[in-house]
Design a protein around this nucleic acid. Structure first.
Length: 117
DNA sequence: CTAATGACAAACT
DNA sequence: CAGTTTGCCATTA
């Protein structure tokens, strides 16, 4: 239940959630990419904050969102640290030492794929 | 109202 | 080239 989420805050979060849900399977994106798509390229940290709130939304594939290094920085926030890596591997993404391999190949940039015509 | 924290990113040394 | 430091925006104490 959302207690102290004003409409304004929800708006910012809603955008992050929407983009996160638009991430194709087998692909990943970075917090900065989403922030950039939202027009807040310097608010990458807020995207991570929104992801933290996404735990109440089962439709949010937060495991597909990693930092720009391709490192599973948020794996520790999952129900189980292995849940994130396991979910990614289940989609065909290879991970080694909590880092995504071929990150550049599977990187999904919303600003590039969801760019307006 | 000020200070500190955070699932990051870019800049500097 | 790699490691360290500062900046950003929002939330919490």
């Amino acid at each position: 239940m959302i207690e102290n989420l004003n409409a304004k805050n929800k708006d910012f979060f809603a955008q992050v959630f929407e983009v996160a849900k638009l991430i194709p399977p087998g692909r990943v994106t970075s917090y900065g990419a989403i922030a950039n798509y939202l027009g807040a390229s310097r608010a990458a940290r807020m995207v991570g904050w929104a992801m933290n709130a996404s735990h109440q939304f089962p439709e949010i594939p937060a495991h597909r969102v990693v930092n720009r290094n391709g490192l599973l920085s948020g794996k520790m926030h999952f129900p189980t640290p292995d849940s994130m890596q396991q979910s990614l591997e289940s989609e065909g993404i290879r991970i080694q030492d909590d880092q995504i391999l071929h990150f550049s190949e599977i990187f999904w940039d919303p600003s590039e794929e969801l760019k307006l015509p």
